[in-house]
Amino acid sequence: MDIIVCIKRVPDLAEAGLEIAADGRGLRTEDLDFDINEWDDYAVEAAVRLKEQHGGVVTAITVGDEDAEEVLRRALAMGADQAILLDDAAFAGADPFAIATALHACIRSLPFDVVLCGAVTSDGASGQVGGMLAALLDVPQVALATGLEVDGGRARVRHEVEGGLEREVEVALPCLITAQSGLNQPRYVSIRGIRKVADVAIAARSAGDLGLAATAVGEAGSRVRLEGLLLPPAGKRAEILEGSLDAAVATLVERLRERGGL
């Protein structure tokens, strides 16, 4: 089975203080730690498990610069067999459509039965790339998968649907699945895994290598333009009860009483 997994390197935002860069279009990245997007980690794990069950080849792909290579090495260490870095200055400033365009150009020349993507990224958070890529590849897709089994040329997918429900559906291969949290528990990268892939060469492809004009990708090929980033307006703020714990709790009980909460 040929499995492709599309991943992205994103900043770890959990504990970081965020600052908007001087150009107003990105974050200051100097103090940020980067790692694989959480949902892409589920996708890699799912890809590797499919390979372990059915045999085959897992290819990990990302769009990014040399720094982005680390997520490909991570995927390799988790069990992917090969990795492709789509690296070109022309890819910069891409919207999800332009990213899907670059991924599509790469994947269309590869054999594949299943393409896996994370359902969403923790940075741009649009959740579009997987669905757009499926449309470009013209394969069926299922978004927000929480369960995946492949058997006899078909994928049986459990996914999150309307009203907080889950539905089990079946699609023919080749197909594209986007991974939601709950799909699996990604394995830890082992030192053994790191050692095994230390010398694996990661292929780099430019827009030209993919047969794409520079105007078809990156900012030029985007359908949605980013005008700028801003800090959210302060808006309404809760009345924060200060003072000692006892005083704060007493006031809170008072507020609850006023609102008929007691």
């Binding site: 680390e70 090495r73 991570r74 830890y188 990268v189 030192i191 790191i194 230390a198």
Partner: peptide, 17 residues
């Protein structure tokens, strides 16, 4: 080195988890 960074990150993830 890249490998050393990978090792550092793998250890961090394991410890966090």
């Amino acid at each position: 080195s890249k490998v050393q960074k990978d090792i550092q990150k793998a250890a961090r993830k394991f410890a966090k988890g």
